[in-house]
Write a protein that binds this DNA or RNA. Structure first.
Length: 562
DNA sequence: CTTGGAATAT
DNA sequence: GATATTCCAA
């Protein structure tokens, strides 16, 4: 097509000037349609012969944006054209309302079937098919005639955005910000846009119909990243006033987007609602108790908010478990010491995510580590009265994760705090907690992702319930060595089952256990190490009795093991 | 001027 | 409470 960059600049009044190939053997009908189209400033090329239309299309394939073809009952119904003009959005039209004919047209690739007579309402918005095609075609699929359309639409949306921001947000510094964010979002290719009226024959795509953008506060444009490795992420912007929709896609799909919530804090919470194409399956409007959007992690497509007003002022990144997993993996890959926002951001390779986002999350991450780890450390490395740290656990971790090769005497599930907490993500709940465990969580017991570089050991234990703090005299914090419970030392039932599985699954080196027991026996003045518990009085008495000691000195300080 | 990080705002 | 934004020092 002859659309150059300068042409695009001129095409600010899109869809005016859209070139329509009109094929109708009825000249009267053709002229009528033509006149109506031209009233809408469409450029119409009329053909009364299918062969002529095809030859014209063949010789100048980029000269048309859309075709309107009458189903010619006298010949083969112009289906040849429909099949040939695959790259051209083609609207079939007929006086005949035969369903099978309609179906055939659609099956052959028609974007819509219109019944004659064609009123203006039917004709006015045919441009949407062009826009749809432009947005939906893959990078390599966009025909030459579509590229300028696509670019025009993008720039148009950008302009609308800017105008809205200028109009609605006069005093703020939104100008720079909005431009920046617009650029950022526009950097991605777009995809997966809903067919305007006729549903497309592809399912599973998230479809958002922005409808009349002019009057809506929020328009969403989906974009597709060009990356193919599945590493790309996307941003999704939605209104946060409980009006936005989220569609849950296939659960098994990789989450590669950054779900972003757009908060509309303006006083006029004008309606912002995304409409969903009827073909969109898995509509899931469920939200959590806070009314927040869920399933943001499910969509595989990028959604860029190109709202008509300052709706990109605040973009909240929704740190889904998936996203957090990436974050954590980046952090661990770098090591906590060198985990700085820019590097994390780089490793995460999440499109749309900013350094600020990462920094903010890192801040929270570190805060939780600071607050939780010391407590855990206290439990796991109790200090003796003289301040000497006991030596049973030589691998006190200094990083976020235990080294995968180190055999921990204690289940890491107890040794490492879980973070972040389950939050309100339904998906998160599914993905984070290890299957089979009740979703109980002490507030501070946030779950780490149960994977660590693919090591099975961690995968088995991470995310397991964290042992609650041990209370003095109530036994030990950790599952009893060898899975034995002394009488009267049962953990709460709700925990016991879970821990039973853990303690059996987690193999404790006998030598380690022996050393622990030996030291505990030889140095009874030190606190018992985790994993051991004091012998019960009955045990002690029985053992003493067995040894012939019937009278117990009141100050006996050498209780033997059971 | 950019970055990291803490403080503060939303 | 989570995240964004701001502020400031390096």
């Amino acid at each position: 097509m002859v659309c150059t960059a300068s042409d695009l600049q001129e095409w600010k009044d899109f869809p005016k000037g859209l070139k329509v190939l009109l094929l109708d053997q009825d000249s009267d009908s053709a002229s009528e349609i033509r006149s109506k189209l031209e009233l809408m400033d469409y450029i119409v090329f009329t053909f009364c012969n299918e062969d002529e239309a095809l030859s014209a299309l063949a010789s100048k394939p980029d000269s048309f944006h859309i075709a309107m073809v009458e189903v010619n009952t006298s010949s083969n119904g112009s289906f040849d054209f429909l099949e040939t003009a695959r790259d051209l959005p083609t609207i079939m039209m007929s006086n005949n309302n035969c369903l099978s004919t309609m179906m055939k047209c659609i099956a052959l690739g028609a974007v819509e079937f219109l019944h004659k007579p064609l009123c203006e309402d039917k004709l006015r918005n045919i441009w949407q098919h062009v826009a749809h095609k432009a947005f939906n075609a893959g990078v390599g699929e966009v025909s030459e005639s579509m590229k300028p359309v696509k670019e025009t639409l993008v720039s148009t949306l950008q302009r609308q955005l800017k105008n809205e921001e200028q109009n609605n947000d006069e005093s703020r510094e939104t100008s720079k910000l909005s431009v920046h964010e617009t650029d950022q979002e526009m950097s991605a290719a777009s995809d997966k846009y809903p067919a305007p009226s006729t549903p497309q024959l592809k399912g599973g795509t998230r479809l958002l119909d922005d409808g009349d953008c002019q009057d809506q506060t929020n328009c969403t444009v989906e974009k597709e990243s060009g990356e193919q490795d599945g590493e790309s992420k996307f941003v999704e912007t939605t209104c946060d006033d409980s009006m936005s929709e989220n569609i849950q896609e296939d659960q098994g799909q990789r989450v590669r987007e950054v779900p972003v919530k757009e908060e509309d804090d303006s006083a006029d919470n004008s309606k912002c609602e995304s409409m969903i194409s009827p073909l969109s399956e898995n509509k899931d409007r469920s939200r959590d108790v806070h009314g927040r959007n869920d399933n943001l992690s499910k969509a595989t497509t990028l959604h860029n908010s190109v709202g008509t007003r300052a709706n990109r002022k605040k973009m909240k990144v929704d740190w889904t478990p998936e996203l957090h997993k990436k974050f954590v993996q980046a952090v661990e890959q770098l090591g906590v010491d060198q985990a700085i926002p820019s590097r994390i951001l780089d490793l995460m390779k999440v499109e749309g995510l900013t350094r600020h986002n990462v920094a903010s999350h890192l801040q929270k991450y570190r805060m939780h580590r600071r607050h939780i780890l010391p407590k855990e450390d206290e439990r796991r490395w109790p200090h003796s009265r003289d301040g000497v740290t006991r030596s049973y656990y030589p691998h006190r971790p200094i990083m976020a994760y235990p080294p995968p090769h180190v055999g921990h005497p204690l289940p890491p599930g107890a040794a490492y705090p879980v973070w972040p907490p389950p939050s309100n993500h339904p998906a998160g709940m599914q993905m984070w907690g290890p299957p089979g465990y009740p979703p109980w969580h002490a507030p501070e017991n946030w779950h780490w992702k149960p994977t660590y570089n693919g090591f099975q050991m961690q995968a088995d234990v991470w995310g397991c319930p964290v042992m609650p703090p041990s209370h003095p005299g109530s036994g030990l914090a950790f599952p009893q060595v060898n899975g034995h419970n002394a009488p009267g030392c049962h953990p709460p039932d709700s925990l016991e089952n879970s821990f039973a599985g853990i303690s059996f699954d987690y193999h404790l080196d006998e030598e380690v256990i022996d050393n622990i027991v030996k030291e505990a026996i030889s140095k009874p003045w030190l606190p018992l190490p985790l994993g051991l518990k004091p012998p019960s009085t009955d045990c002690v008495l029985a053992e003493l009795s067995r040894q012939g000691i019937l009278s117990i000195p009141s100050h006996s300080d050498r209780p033997g093991p059971c």
